[in-house]
């Protein structure tokens, strides 16, 4: 029972049984939904992984449809949970609240705890699991882009000296990996030929950013770690604060306070490190990206400046 539970009136209000029942049933329902989610995902992940590898379509559209279907199911589970949460928890809360159990009412603590406990169970467990599964489903298309990139480089090496001028027949060397169709000049007769890169080479610009992310993933992870550290410390500090409030022994309370100050210092350090880490990541990612598609350098530098000015780090 929470801190707001009543001391003056020890008798439980009559609506309490209903509230308790709804809460218990909601928790059981969430367990069931989480189970369903797990079964669906555990069955789908190997199928999706396999399909991604074997789908001959360069855009992996069959895979894409299957994945959308699985994600759609997860979304439906989420909607169902959301509906139940609204109907069985929030509506009941409102009803009792409207019947006069307002913030100053001695039983308000019970009512408020009911809503918050259900909300926390929903947000902090169910939604977290849902997110984890969604990530895992999305990861089924994870591929080593480095290999894909090497294939583009190999192909370029193999074809760069294979072309001749359509006008005079002299050899034309393709000077670099062109990302889109363009004009190339014959060094012998000066005729403008049109060079059209292969499908594989044309895809390079579309996976370049992901490859750059892949290469700098550890820097991104460092940002996430610092954020997590901050949250963890905040939680610990909060627990200490409650302890301090209820601790009668002054000496112990002072000890807690000291510990809390130490956490706060560490937490501030984590907060202060965020912009630094974020800038490191952004610069490194763009440097890689530009290396992969140097022809987009100017454009990418503009975007990098935009990202550096953004409030929160961009993946």
């Amino acid at each position: 029972m929470g801190f707001f539970s009543s001391k003056k009136e020890d008798k439980l209000p009559e609506w309490y049984a209903q509230v308790k029942e709804n809460q218990e049933r909601f928790f059981v329902f969430l367990d069931k939904m989480e189970n369903k989610m797990m079964e669906l995902c555990e069955a789908s992940i190997p199928e999706l992984t396999e399909l991604y590898k074997n789908d001959p379509d360069i855009f992996h559209r069959e895979y894409g449809r299957l994945k959308a279907g699985v994600l759609g199911q997860l979304e439906q589970i989420r909607e169902k949970v959301d509906d139940v949460h609204e109907e069985k928890i929030l509506d009941l809360y409102s009803e009792i609240n409207h019947s006069g159990v307002r913030a100053t009412h001695p039983h308000y603590g019970l009512l408020n705890d009911f809503r918050n406990q259900c909300g926390d169970r929903y947000r902090q467990q169910f939604e977290v699991k849902l997110e984890e599964w969604t990530d895992k489903i999305n990861e089924t298309s994870a591929e080593d882009l480095e290999i894909k990139y090497q294939n583009v480089l190999k192909e370029y090496d193999a074809i760069k000296d294979k072309f001749t001028c359509k006008q005079c027949g002299s050899p034309i060397t393709i000077e670099k990996i062109f990302l889109i169709e363009t004009f190339v000049n014959c060094p012998s007769c000066n005729t403008q030929n049109t060079f059209s890169p292969s499908t594989q080479a044309q895809m390079l610009q579309h996976f370049a950013q992901d490859l750059a992310r892949q290469r700098t993933a550890s820097l991104y992870q460092a940002i996430r770690n610092a954020e997590q550290k901050e949250r963890d410390l905040y939680q610990k500090m909060h627990e200490l604060k409650l302890k301090i409030t209820f601790e009668k022994d002054k000496k112990l309370a002072a000890q807690y306070q000291q510990q809390r100050d130490a956490f706060e210092k560490e937490r501030q350090e984590a907060i202060d490190s965020l912009p630094v880490l974020s800038e490191q990541y952004t610069r490194a990612k763009y440097a890689e990206w530009i290396k992969i598609v140097p022809d987009f350098k100017e454009h990418l530098l503009t975007r990098m400046e935009n990202d550096l000015g953004a409030v929160s780090p961009r993946w």
Partner: peptide, 24 residues
């Protein structure tokens, strides 16, 4: 939206601190 607003609050505030002002 009450729930959206709740999500945007720092996650680890103590439960009883949310929702002091109601959406009634």
């Amino acid at each position: 939206n009450e729930e959206e607003n709740k999500q945007q609050q720092p996650q680890n505030q103590h439960a009883s601190q949310h929702h002091e002002d109601n959406y009634d």
